[in-house]
Amino acid sequence: MLNIKNVSVQYDNSQEKALSDINLSFNNGEFVCILGKSGAGKSTLIRCINGLQKPTHGEVYWQDQPLSKMNEEQLRQVRRKMGMIFQHFNLIPRLTVIQNVMTGTFGYRSTFKNLIGWFTDDEIKRAKQIIDDVGLMTQIDRKVEQLSGGQKQRVGIARALLQQPAVFLGDEPVSSLDPGISNHIFQLIQEMHHRLQLLTIINVHDVELAKRYATRLIALKDGKVVFDDIPEKFDDDKFHLTYGSTVNKFQNYLKIN
């Protein structure tokens, strides 16, 4: 349902390619985690999928339609089928939980209706159901900056789910959260993944977390795919291949001492 063909990305201010010649295809029901050091191209890859980043070369196909051939309107229609959550949550400050969640419907409604804030009973009912699902019913009318990090990410998830997505994308969604909270967030994502039959693609740098939840692992190094298989096959060698010699040296240091 989602194909990435020969995609390369080169940023203006950099000599090296952020992604070089990536070929991947994803199917419904997969829970994919993308691993790699910072700067390996994880974020760029996720952002290529929903067209926030345009590839320098190559093409991303969504249901066999190339994203680069789409106009703004068509791209919008693709994006609204892809819920996305972010490392820094990217909630709208000073709005309440429910107000933030309601923005998930913006892709489906006219600008006028959005501006007035005219939501149908059905939309509000659905939003409340989702807020209940992510466990924030008691916080529904609080402003988002009063919430904890984990709660903010739950709001982010609720916003993405209200889009009725087919794909769930996460750009380092737990990197600024405590380990325990990260695990809860992943549990929630997994639950929604199964319930709604999504394709889920998430960047993580915590290998243990990725192995616990993913059905497929992809590792990037210097913009290239160095591993793409089931998590069980991601062994120590692959780990060193992905994370390079610095970790290796550090682990040796630990062994010696």
């Binding site: 919008r76 693709v78 996305m84 972010f86 909630l91 913006f106 600008t111 889009q163």
Partner: peptide
């Protein structure tokens, strides 16, 4: 960040 999030939900650009 929030501008990017609004892009990702498929909101129209200006709005």
């Amino acid at each position: 960040g929030p501008q990017e999030a609004m892009k990702a939900v498929g909101a129209k650009k200006g709005f």
